[in-house]
């Protein structure tokens, strides 16, 4: 058994649900060879640095694979046939890191920041309201 990291770029026309379907399909291929996948990540519909097959945006998925070489060969063969897979990159690694990848960390950070901003905005609004009411009281 060997460890691999796999990043797959999918066509942007797919819906979020279809993306997760592709993800499970790819996992079942690995599982049919007694391998296993872990750390499934969906980085979202990202804009690509250059057009790939005339698409400027694409879905990115990432997962770790623990499997034999045969499983990887079959996985790559299947991905080559699929038309919704624009590109894939499988890299052999020495060990699997359970921490979320940098991409996922950035995504999570953005989301929390957004939440924080919303919260701050709400607080500011409330404070402004309070201030206004005070003003009105004073003027009255």
């Amino acid at each position: 058994m060997r460890y691999y990291e796999c990043t797959v770029i999918l066509a942007p026309e797919l819906s979020k649900q279809q993306v997760s379907e592709v993800q499970t399909e790819l996992s079942t291929i690995v599982e049919s060879f007694d391998g296993k996948t872990s750390k499934h990540e969906y980085w979202g519909l990202r804009s690509t640095a250059y057009p790939i097959e005339k698409f400027t945006r694409a879905h990115y998925i990432y997962f770790n694979v623990t499997a034999t070489t045969e499983a990887i060969i079959e996985l790559e063969r299947k991905m080559k046939i699929r038309e919704d897979v624009l590109r894939y990159l499988t890299i052999r690694v020495d060990s699997i890191d359970e921490e979320p990848t940098v991409m996922m960390q950035a995504k999570l950070r953005d989301e929390t920041r957004k939440e924080g901003r919303d919260r701050d905005n709400n607080r500011d609004n409330n404070r402004d309201k309070g201030h206004n009411s005070k003003d009105t009281k004073e003027s009255a």
Binding site: I9, T48, Y50, R87, L89, I91
Partner: peptide, 11 residues
């Protein structure tokens, strides 16, 4: 080079 292939970075 890997990042370029994945279109995370431009060529």
């Amino acid at each position: 080079k890997r990042a370029r292939f994945l279109a995370l970075m431009p060529y």
